[in-house]
Amino acid sequence: MSDVVSILEECGALLTGHFLLSSGKHSSQYFQCARLLQFPDRAAEVISSITEKISADKNISQADSVIGPAMGGIIVAYELGRQLGKPAFFTERDDEGKMTLRRGFEIAPGEKIIIAEDVVTTGKSALETAERIKDMGGEVVASVCIVDRRPESAENPFPWPLFSAVRIPAVLFDPDDCPLCREGKLPPVKPGSRKVF
Rank of each mutant, 00 (worst) to 15 (best):
V4P: 01
V5N: 05
S6Q: 14
E10V: 00
C11P: 05
G12S: 07
A13Q: 09
A13H: 07
A13R: 07
L15D: 04
G17N: 13
G17W: 15
G17S: 14
H18L: 06
H18N: 06
F19R: 04
F19E: 04
L21C: 03
S22V: 03
S23H: 06
G24E: 09
H26P: 13
S27A: 14
F31V: 01
Q32D: 15
Q32N: 14
C33G: 09
C33Q: 10
R35L: 14
L36T: 10
L36S: 10
Q38A: 14
F39V: 11
D41M: 14
R42V: 11
A43K: 02
A44H: 03
E45Q: 15
V46C: 08
S48D: 10
S49M: 09
S49Y: 13
I50S: 01
E52Y: 07
K53Y: 07
I54E: 09
I54W: 07
S55L: 14
D57I: 06
K58W: 09
N59Q: 09
I60K: 13
Q62Y: 01
Q62P: 00
Q62I: 00
V66N: 10
I67Q: 08
I67T: 11
P69G: 08
G73E: 02
I75N: 06
R82P: 02
R82S: 10
Q83L: 12
G85L: 10
G85K: 12
G85T: 11
K86T: 03
K86S: 03
K86Y: 07
P87C: 02
P87E: 02
T91Q: 03
D95Q: 09
E96R: 14
E96K: 14
E96Y: 13
G97R: 04
G104I: 05
G104D: 05
I107N: 13
I107E: 13
I113E: 10
A116F: 08
E117M: 06
D118F: 10
V119D: 00
V120Y: 04
G123A: 05
T129L: 04
T129A: 12
A130D: 11
E131Q: 12
I133L: 09
I133M: 11
D135A: 15
G137D: 10
E139Q: 13
E139S: 12
V140I: 13
S143Y: 01
S143W: 00
S143H: 01
S143E: 06
V144F: 06
V144D: 06
C145E: 03
I146K: 01
I146N: 02
I146H: 02
V147I: 12
R149Y: 05
R150A: 06
R150G: 04
P151Y: 04
P151H: 03
E152H: 05
N156L: 03
P157T: 13
P157M: 14
P157Y: 14
F158E: 07
F158T: 05
P159K: 00
P161S: 12
F163K: 08
V166D: 03
R167S: 12
I168A: 01
A170K: 02
L172R: 11
F173T: 05
F173P: 07
F173W: 11
F173R: 03
D174S: 08
P175I: 13
P175A: 14
D177F: 09
P179L: 09
P179E: 10
L180K: 15
R182E: 15
E183P: 01
E183A: 15
V189A: 06
K190Q: 09
P191F: 08
K195A: 12
V196P: 04
F197R: 05
